[in-house]
Nucleic acid binder design. Structure first.
Lengths: 157, 157
DNA sequence: TGATTGTAGTGCGACATCGTACTATATAGT
DNA sequence: ACTATATAGTACGATGTCGCACTACAATCA
């Protein structure tokens, strides 16, 4: 291909990333019970991978979503008994999010359900090729994270 | 890091891709007029990059979204005069989607608006590093595309 | 301590996404 | 041609996303 400007490269890159995100979302959601959402699973996963006991706002920031969206996701998860919202003893305005046993079970079941799909994928496309790109993706993500509007207010995204 | 299974690599990869998609979406939408959506811009962009005159269903498949979502996006774009829906002479059930001059202008303006952000990004993170990952992303996307449920019905995603 | 300002979470409304069910047209089988 | 089946698009309703505005509490400062 002829000359490609850096901007065009970024444009193409984000286009691919967007499509891949959509495809993987579909893949994952197909393995979740009924109408559970990827965001809901992602929250549960975060509570285990990172740590639970954090506040909703901290989690909203971690996921780059507005806090109102996080409120909604947490409400759904709590309604299903997958998390528990406890008062924050350090801050009366705030809360702490804890995953329940049911939540752990749910997450584990979801992961078990997806693993065959991922294995299938890995059989057709070597994970090593992906592993090579991971550092690039991570670095870019961190840079974009720093660049994003440091708006101290409302919006987290 | 210790042993990593291929499934874990895929899991981590999709996690990064998801976050990057979210960050780039925010970046792009911040440059679109009022309440325009990334999906709407993406449709316009597709009409120029690929070709207009296609049917809504073809476009829904290209974007991996359900046809009802495409109906909605097209309705919004048509209401704003950015596209035109013409009857399909080859198939009375169908339609053809054409971009209007206003649509071309809108897309060009949107791209111009984003270019500085991308240039800014490119200044902090070399586009070349991204370019190296592009073939991997494209290959994976194509494979996932082939794998996806060839459900002849309803759902396109 | 009282007043001001900042922050965490939520109620609400607008809009996007998408599954179900329906209509209109096309295609296949006889 | 006639019937059965498949397909393109849409109306509608349920739910997710998110901006705005509000309340409760915290932190700062005099």
């Amino acid at each position: 291909m002829p000359d490609t400007t850096p901007e065009e490269t970024y444009f193409a890159f984000f286009t691919e990333v967007g499509i891949l995100a959509q495809l993987s979302r579909a893949l994952f959601e197909a393995r979740l019970p009924d109408g559970f959402t990827l965001s809901q699973f992602t929250v549960l996963n975060h509570l285990i991978r990172v740590k639970d006991g954090r506040t909703p706002l901290e989690m909203a920031r971690a996921f780059q979503v507005p806090k109102t969206s996080m409120t909604h996701s947490l409400a759904v998860l709590e309604r299903h008994g997958l998390i528990r919202l406890a008062p924050n003893l350090q801050d009366g305005r705030s809360k702490c999010v804890w995953i329940t046993d049911a939540g752990r079970t749910f997450r584990q079941a979801a992961i078990s359900g997806m693993t065959p799909d991922l294995a299938d994928l890995a059989a057709r496309f070597p994970a090593l090729r992906l592993a090579e790109t991971l550092p690039v993706l991570t670095d870019l993500r961190q840079i974009m994270d720093q660049m994003r509007d440091p708006d101290p207010e409302q919006r987290s995204r």
